[in-house]
Amino acid sequence: MTAWTLFLIVLCECASIAGQIFFKHAMTEHWSKSRRKAAWILSAGIGAMAVNFFIWLSLLANFELSRLYPFEGLNRVVLLCAAAIFLREKIPPQLWIGVVLISAGVALVFVS
C-alpha cells in the first residue's frame, strides 16, 4: 500500500464525513429558514458523496474489499470526532463504547 493509496483512502473517508456534516447542517440550520440555502448545502453534500463513491470504486478496482473495509470501521470513529468538533454535538460515553464495538465488528465481518 503506497502513500498515494493511503492518500486516496483518507480523501475518500473525508469526503464521506464532509457529506454527512453538510447534510446535517442543511437539515438543522437552514431547512426551516431558507429552503434555497438548504438545497445548496445538500447539493454540496451530494457532491462530496459522489467524490467518495468514485474514489471508493477506483480503490475497489485495485484492492481487496477486506483490505479496505477496516478503514470503513475507522471512519465511524472519525465521524464522531467530526460531529463533536464541527457540529458541537455532545457525545455520550455509551456512544463511544458502541462505536468501538461496531468498528471492531465491521473489521471482523469483512476480514474473515
Binding site: Q94, L95, L101, I102, A104, G105, V106, V109, S112
Partner: peptide, 25 residues
C-alpha cells in the same frame, strides 16, 4: 457466514444496542 463473521455481526449488534440509549434521550 464463517464463525469469525458471526462474532463480528454480534459485536455490531451489541454496539448498536448500546448506542440506542442516547437515541431515546
Amino acid at each position: 457466514i464463517s464463525s469469525r463473521r458471526w462474532l463480528g455481526i454480534l459485536l455490531v449488534i451489541a454496539g448498536v444496542l448500546i448506542s440506542a440509549k442516547p437515541a431515546t434521550a
